[in-house]
Design a protein around this nucleic acid. Sequence first.
DNA 1: TTTTTTGCAAAACCTTTGCAGTTGG
DNA 2: CCAACTGCAAAGGTTTTGCAAAAAA
Lengths: 152, 152
Amino acid sequence: MTTARRHPTLAVRDIDGAVEAVREAGGRLTRPRRAVLEALFATDEPVSAEQIAAGLDGRLTPTDLTSAYRNLEWLEDLGVVRHVHVGHGPGLYALAGERAREYLVCERCARVTAIDAAELARARAAIRTTTGFEAHFDHFPIHGLCAACAAR
Amino acid sequence: MTTARRHPTLAVRDIDGAVEAVREAGGRLTRPRRAVLEALFATDEPVSAEQIAAGLDGRLTPTDLTSAYRNLEWLEDLGVVRHVHVGHGPGLYALAGERAREYLVCERCARVTAIDAAELARARAAIRTTTGFEAHFDHFPIHGLCAACAAR
DNA sequence: TTTTTTGCAAAACCTTTGCAGTTGG
DNA sequence: CCAACTGCAAAGGTTTTGCAAAAAA
Protein backbone atom coordinates (compact mmCIF):
# COMPACT_ATOMS: atom_id res chain seq x y z
CA MET A 1 0.00 0.00 0.00
CA THR A 2 2.27 2.69 -1.27
CA THR A 3 1.51 6.38 -1.35
CA ALA A 4 3.81 7.85 -3.93
CA ARG A 5 3.61 6.43 -7.45
CA ARG A 6 0.22 6.25 -9.03
CA HIS A 7 -1.01 3.48 -11.24
CA PRO A 8 -2.87 4.33 -14.40
CA THR A 9 -6.50 3.43 -13.96
CA LEU A 10 -7.54 0.29 -15.77
CA ALA A 11 -11.31 0.31 -15.89
CA VAL A 12 -12.95 -3.10 -15.99
CA ARG A 13 -16.71 -3.45 -16.26
CA ASP A 14 -17.17 -6.92 -14.86
CA ILE A 15 -15.37 -10.02 -13.66
CA ASP A 16 -14.66 -11.12 -17.22
CA GLY A 17 -13.02 -7.80 -17.96
CA ALA A 18 -10.94 -8.16 -14.82
CA VAL A 19 -9.95 -11.70 -15.75
CA GLU A 20 -8.87 -10.47 -19.15
CA ALA A 21 -6.76 -7.75 -17.55
CA VAL A 22 -5.15 -10.29 -15.24
CA ARG A 23 -4.33 -12.56 -18.17
CA GLU A 24 -3.04 -9.70 -20.27
CA ALA A 25 -0.65 -8.85 -17.48
CA GLY A 26 0.67 -12.38 -17.47
CA GLY A 27 -0.96 -13.12 -14.13
CA ARG A 28 -2.68 -16.29 -13.10
CA LEU A 29 -6.30 -16.49 -12.19
CA THR A 30 -6.01 -18.17 -8.84
CA ARG A 31 -8.79 -18.82 -6.42
CA PRO A 32 -7.85 -16.05 -3.96
CA ARG A 33 -7.37 -13.65 -6.86
CA ARG A 34 -10.82 -14.37 -8.16
CA ALA A 35 -12.28 -14.15 -4.66
CA VAL A 36 -10.83 -10.66 -4.17
CA LEU A 37 -12.22 -9.52 -7.51
CA GLU A 38 -15.62 -11.02 -6.76
CA ALA A 39 -15.74 -9.26 -3.41
CA LEU A 40 -14.90 -5.94 -5.02
CA PHE A 41 -17.60 -6.41 -7.63
CA ALA A 42 -20.10 -7.46 -4.99
CA THR A 43 -19.94 -4.19 -3.05
CA ASP A 44 -20.55 -0.61 -4.05
CA GLU A 45 -18.43 0.99 -1.36
CA PRO A 46 -14.77 0.68 -0.38
CA VAL A 47 -14.07 -2.30 1.89
CA SER A 48 -11.14 -3.37 4.05
CA ALA A 49 -8.80 -6.24 3.24
CA GLU A 50 -10.23 -8.04 6.23
CA GLN A 51 -13.80 -7.76 4.98
CA ILE A 52 -12.67 -9.03 1.60
CA ALA A 53 -10.83 -11.96 3.19
CA ALA A 54 -13.94 -12.74 5.21
CA GLY A 55 -15.91 -12.99 2.01
CA LEU A 56 -17.76 -9.76 2.75
CA ASP A 57 -18.84 -11.07 6.15
CA GLY A 58 -19.73 -14.55 5.00
CA ARG A 59 -21.68 -13.80 1.84
CA LEU A 60 -18.80 -14.95 -0.38
CA THR A 61 -15.99 -17.49 -0.30
CA PRO A 62 -13.49 -16.52 2.39
CA THR A 63 -9.79 -16.17 1.62
CA ASP A 64 -6.55 -15.96 3.50
CA LEU A 65 -5.89 -12.40 4.73
CA THR A 66 -2.31 -12.33 3.48
CA SER A 67 -3.42 -13.44 0.05
CA ALA A 68 -6.06 -10.75 0.04
CA TYR A 69 -3.43 -8.11 0.81
CA ARG A 70 -1.05 -9.48 -1.79
CA ASN A 71 -3.70 -9.61 -4.47
CA LEU A 72 -5.02 -6.19 -3.65
CA GLU A 73 -1.53 -4.79 -4.02
CA TRP A 74 -0.98 -6.70 -7.22
CA LEU A 75 -4.29 -5.53 -8.66
CA GLU A 76 -3.53 -2.00 -7.57
CA ASP A 77 -0.26 -2.13 -9.47
CA LEU A 78 -2.26 -3.37 -12.42
CA GLY A 79 -4.50 -0.33 -12.08
CA VAL A 80 -7.68 -2.32 -11.51
CA VAL A 81 -7.90 -1.53 -7.78
CA ARG A 82 -7.29 1.55 -5.67
CA HIS A 83 -7.50 2.23 -1.97
CA VAL A 84 -8.67 5.14 0.12
CA HIS A 85 -7.99 6.18 3.71
CA VAL A 86 -11.03 7.17 5.68
CA GLY A 87 -10.08 8.08 9.21
CA HIS A 88 -7.54 6.11 11.21
CA GLY A 89 -8.83 2.64 10.50
CA PRO A 90 -7.63 0.20 7.86
CA GLY A 91 -7.31 1.21 4.23
CA LEU A 92 -10.40 0.58 2.12
CA TYR A 93 -10.24 -0.94 -1.34
CA ALA A 94 -12.41 -0.45 -4.40
CA LEU A 95 -12.37 -1.01 -8.12
CA ALA A 96 -10.41 1.78 -9.74
CA GLY A 97 -12.67 1.97 -12.75
CA GLU A 98 -15.91 2.52 -10.91
CA ARG A 99 -17.64 5.79 -11.59
CA ALA A 100 -15.03 8.11 -10.15
CA ARG A 101 -15.89 8.79 -6.55
CA GLU A 102 -14.34 11.14 -4.08
CA TYR A 103 -14.91 11.26 -0.37
CA LEU A 104 -15.76 13.80 2.28
CA VAL A 105 -15.39 12.95 5.95
CA CYS A 106 -16.96 14.99 8.72
CA GLU A 107 -14.56 15.30 11.60
CA ARG A 108 -17.34 15.85 14.07
CA CYS A 109 -19.94 13.23 13.23
CA ALA A 110 -17.50 11.02 11.28
CA ARG A 111 -20.00 10.58 8.47
CA VAL A 112 -18.50 9.70 5.09
CA THR A 113 -20.05 11.17 1.98
CA ALA A 114 -19.17 9.91 -1.48
CA ILE A 115 -19.71 12.20 -4.40
CA ASP A 116 -19.00 12.15 -8.09
CA ALA A 117 -15.55 13.44 -8.85
CA ALA A 118 -17.08 15.81 -11.37
CA GLU A 119 -18.75 17.74 -8.58
CA LEU A 120 -15.38 18.91 -7.34
CA ALA A 121 -14.25 20.29 -10.68
CA ARG A 122 -14.45 23.89 -9.48
CA ALA A 123 -12.52 23.14 -6.31
CA ARG A 124 -9.88 21.32 -8.31
CA ALA A 125 -9.63 24.28 -10.67
CA ALA A 126 -9.15 26.66 -7.74
CA ILE A 127 -6.40 24.46 -6.30
CA ARG A 128 -4.72 24.24 -9.69
CA THR A 129 -4.78 28.02 -10.05
CA THR A 130 -3.40 28.85 -6.62
CA THR A 131 -0.97 25.98 -6.10
CA GLY A 132 -0.27 24.32 -9.44
CA PHE A 133 -1.40 21.01 -7.99
CA GLU A 134 -3.66 18.66 -9.84
CA ALA A 135 -5.66 17.47 -6.85
CA HIS A 136 -7.88 14.45 -6.34
CA PHE A 137 -9.67 13.19 -3.28
CA ASP A 138 -10.00 9.49 -3.90
CA HIS A 139 -6.97 8.50 -1.83
CA PHE A 140 -7.12 10.93 1.06
CA PRO A 141 -10.62 12.30 1.42
CA ILE A 142 -11.58 15.87 2.14
CA HIS A 143 -11.82 16.48 5.86
CA GLY A 144 -13.93 19.11 7.48
CA LEU A 145 -17.37 19.78 8.84
CA CYS A 146 -20.45 18.59 7.05
CA ALA A 147 -23.24 21.11 6.48
CA ALA A 148 -25.18 19.93 9.53
CA CYS A 149 -22.23 20.04 11.90
CA ALA A 150 -20.93 23.32 10.51
CA ALA A 151 -24.31 24.90 11.30
CA ARG A 152 -23.57 24.77 14.99
CA MET B 1 -4.98 10.06 17.83
CA THR B 2 -8.64 10.30 17.05
CA THR B 3 -10.19 11.43 13.82
CA ALA B 4 -13.68 12.57 14.66
CA ARG B 5 -14.00 15.27 17.30
CA ARG B 6 -11.99 18.42 16.78
CA HIS B 7 -10.33 20.43 19.49
CA PRO B 8 -10.60 24.20 19.49
CA THR B 9 -7.25 25.68 18.61
CA LEU B 10 -5.40 27.19 21.51
CA ALA B 11 -2.64 29.33 20.06
CA VAL B 12 0.48 29.72 22.21
CA ARG B 13 3.38 31.92 21.08
CA ASP B 14 6.19 30.41 23.12
CA ILE B 15 7.04 27.89 25.81
CA ASP B 16 5.84 30.26 28.51
CA GLY B 17 2.50 30.56 26.80
CA ALA B 18 2.28 26.81 26.58
CA VAL B 19 3.21 26.42 30.25
CA GLU B 20 0.47 28.86 31.16
CA ALA B 21 -2.03 26.88 29.11
CA VAL B 22 -0.95 23.66 30.82
CA ARG B 23 -1.37 25.23 34.24
CA GLU B 24 -4.70 26.77 33.34
CA ALA B 25 -5.93 23.32 32.40
CA GLY B 26 -4.91 21.99 35.80
CA GLY B 27 -2.06 20.00 34.30
CA ARG B 28 1.40 19.54 35.73
CA LEU B 29 4.53 20.68 34.05
CA THR B 30 6.46 17.44 34.08
CA ARG B 31 9.76 16.82 32.41
CA PRO B 32 8.39 14.80 29.48
CA ARG B 33 5.62 17.35 29.02
CA ARG B 34 8.12 20.15 28.78
CA ALA B 35 10.37 18.10 26.49
CA VAL B 36 7.50 17.54 24.05
CA LEU B 37 6.68 21.23 24.01
CA GLU B 38 10.31 22.17 23.53
CA ALA B 39 10.62 19.80 20.61
CA LEU B 40 7.54 21.25 18.97
CA PHE B 41 8.85 24.77 19.40
CA ALA B 42 12.26 23.75 18.09
CA THR B 43 11.01 22.65 14.69
CA ASP B 44 9.07 24.42 11.98
CA GLU B 45 7.61 21.35 10.37
CA PRO B 46 5.43 18.52 11.65
CA VAL B 47 7.41 15.76 13.35
CA SER B 48 6.63 12.21 14.46
CA ALA B 49 6.22 11.12 18.07
CA GLU B 50 9.37 9.10 17.64
CA GLN B 51 11.41 12.10 16.54
CA ILE B 52 10.07 14.05 19.49
CA ALA B 53 10.92 11.24 21.90
CA ALA B 54 14.40 11.10 20.39
CA GLY B 55 14.84 14.77 21.19
CA LEU B 56 14.66 15.71 17.53
CA ASP B 57 17.43 13.27 16.67
CA GLY B 58 19.63 14.08 19.61
CA ARG B 59 19.51 17.85 19.62
CA LEU B 60 17.21 17.93 22.67
CA THR B 61 16.60 15.90 25.81
CA PRO B 62 15.17 12.50 24.85
CA THR B 63 11.96 11.21 26.39
CA ASP B 64 10.11 7.96 26.69
CA LEU B 65 8.08 7.24 23.56
CA THR B 66 4.93 6.36 25.50
CA SER B 67 5.12 9.59 27.43
CA ALA B 68 5.56 11.49 24.19
CA TYR B 69 2.42 9.89 22.78
CA ARG B 70 0.47 10.52 25.96
CA ASN B 71 1.52 14.13 26.16
CA LEU B 72 0.88 14.75 22.51
CA GLU B 73 -2.62 13.42 22.94
CA TRP B 74 -3.14 15.44 26.08
CA LEU B 75 -1.87 18.60 24.44
CA GLU B 76 -4.03 17.90 21.41
CA ASP B 77 -7.07 17.68 23.66
CA LEU B 78 -5.97 20.97 25.14
CA GLY B 79 -5.90 22.43 21.65
CA VAL B 80 -2.21 23.32 21.72
CA VAL B 81 -1.14 20.51 19.39
CA ARG B 82 -2.54 18.97 16.24
CA HIS B 83 -1.41 16.16 14.01
CA VAL B 84 -1.42 15.59 10.28
CA HIS B 85 -1.17 12.44 8.16
CA VAL B 86 1.25 12.67 5.30
CA GLY B 87 1.34 9.44 3.37
CA HIS B 88 1.34 6.05 5.09
CA GLY B 89 3.95 6.73 7.76
CA PRO B 90 3.43 7.79 11.35
CA GLY B 91 1.28 10.78 12.21
CA LEU B 92 3.15 14.07 12.39
CA TYR B 93 2.62 16.57 15.19
CA ALA B 94 2.84 20.35 15.23
CA LEU B 95 1.75 23.29 17.33
CA ALA B 96 -1.87 24.06 16.57
CA GLY B 97 -1.39 27.79 16.85
CA GLU B 98 1.33 28.14 14.29
CA ARG B 99 0.45 30.22 11.28
CA ALA B 100 -2.23 27.98 9.82
CA ARG B 101 -0.61 25.65 7.37
CA GLU B 102 -2.13 23.18 5.02
CA TYR B 103 -0.37 20.46 3.09
CA LEU B 104 -0.14 19.23 -0.46
CA VAL B 105 1.46 15.87 -1.20
CA CYS B 106 2.54 14.84 -4.67
CA GLU B 107 1.69 11.20 -5.23
CA ARG B 108 4.39 10.81 -7.84
CA CYS B 109 7.45 12.47 -6.33
CA ALA B 110 6.13 12.34 -2.74
CA ARG B 111 7.15 15.93 -2.14
CA VAL B 112 5.23 17.71 0.61
CA THR B 113 4.38 21.36 0.16
CA ALA B 114 3.10 23.50 3.02
CA ILE B 115 1.12 26.57 2.19
CA ASP B 116 -0.78 29.18 4.10
CA ALA B 117 -4.35 28.12 4.73
CA ALA B 118 -5.47 31.46 3.30
CA GLU B 119 -4.26 30.42 -0.13
CA LEU B 120 -6.91 27.75 -0.31
CA ALA B 121 -9.79 30.09 0.45
CA ARG B 122 -11.16 29.87 -3.07
CA ALA B 123 -10.96 26.08 -3.10
CA ARG B 124 -12.70 25.94 0.25
CA ALA B 125 -15.41 28.25 -1.05
CA ALA B 126 -15.96 26.02 -4.08
CA ILE B 127 -16.23 22.94 -1.86
CA ARG B 128 -18.67 24.74 0.43
CA THR B 129 -20.83 25.73 -2.52
CA THR B 130 -21.00 22.33 -4.17
CA THR B 131 -21.03 20.05 -1.13
CA GLY B 132 -21.91 22.10 1.93
CA PHE B 133 -18.69 20.95 3.59
CA GLU B 134 -16.44 23.31 5.46
CA ALA B 135 -13.15 21.77 4.39
CA HIS B 136 -9.65 22.04 5.78
CA PHE B 137 -6.44 20.32 4.81
CA ASP B 138 -4.39 20.37 7.96
CA HIS B 139 -5.29 16.85 9.07
CA PHE B 140 -5.42 14.98 5.79
CA PRO B 141 -3.44 16.81 3.14
CA ILE B 142 -4.43 17.37 -0.44
CA HIS B 143 -3.17 14.59 -2.65
CA GLY B 144 -2.44 14.92 -6.32
CA LEU B 145 0.25 15.78 -8.80
CA CYS B 146 2.52 18.74 -8.24
CA ALA B 147 2.98 21.16 -11.12
CA ALA B 148 6.24 19.53 -12.21
CA CYS B 149 4.90 15.98 -12.20
CA ALA B 150 1.58 16.99 -13.77
CA ALA B 151 3.50 18.49 -16.70
CA ARG B 152 4.42 15.08 -17.97
C1' DT C 1 7.36 -28.94 -15.56
C1' DT C 2 8.16 -24.46 -14.30
C1' DT C 3 7.01 -20.27 -12.38
C1' DT C 4 3.62 -18.00 -9.89
C1' DT C 5 1.00 -17.91 -5.99
C1' DT C 6 -0.60 -19.69 -1.68
C1' DG C 7 -1.09 -20.38 3.39
C1' DC C 8 0.75 -20.21 7.64
C1' DA C 9 3.68 -18.29 11.03
C1' DA C 10 6.31 -14.66 12.32
C1' DA C 11 7.81 -10.05 12.21
C1' DA C 12 7.36 -5.09 11.46
C1' DC C 13 5.30 -0.88 12.38
C1' DC C 14 2.72 2.54 14.82
C1' DT C 15 -0.02 3.34 18.83
C1' DT C 16 -2.45 2.23 23.16
C1' DT C 17 -3.00 0.12 27.73
C1' DG C 18 -1.88 -1.75 32.46
C1' DC C 19 0.31 -0.99 36.42
C1' DA C 20 3.60 -0.26 40.05
C1' DG C 21 6.49 3.45 41.15
C1' DT C 22 7.67 8.48 40.97
C1' DT C 23 6.85 13.27 41.32
C1' DG C 24 4.87 17.91 40.97
C1' DG C 25 2.21 21.12 43.48
C1' DC D 1 0.44 14.05 51.03
C1' DC D 2 -1.91 12.49 46.96
C1' DA D 3 -3.66 12.89 42.49
C1' DA D 4 -1.30 13.28 38.13
C1' DC D 5 2.13 11.44 35.58
C1' DT D 6 6.00 8.40 34.31
C1' DG D 7 8.50 4.36 32.49
C1' DC D 8 8.61 -0.10 31.25
C1' DA D 9 6.62 -4.07 29.37
C1' DA D 10 3.11 -5.97 27.00
C1' DA D 11 -0.69 -6.00 23.88
C1' DG D 12 -3.48 -4.21 19.85
C1' DG D 13 -4.49 -3.37 15.06
C1' DT D 14 -2.87 -3.19 10.39
C1' DT D 15 0.29 -4.64 6.95
C1' DT D 16 4.50 -7.03 5.31
C1' DT D 17 7.84 -10.81 4.83
C1' DG D 18 9.91 -15.61 4.66
C1' DC D 19 9.46 -19.95 3.08
C1' DA D 20 8.05 -24.58 2.08
C1' DA D 21 4.01 -26.50 -0.20
C1' DA D 22 0.44 -26.13 -3.81
C1' DA D 23 -1.38 -25.15 -8.20
C1' DA D 24 -1.91 -22.56 -12.67
C1' DA D 25 -0.41 -22.60 -17.32
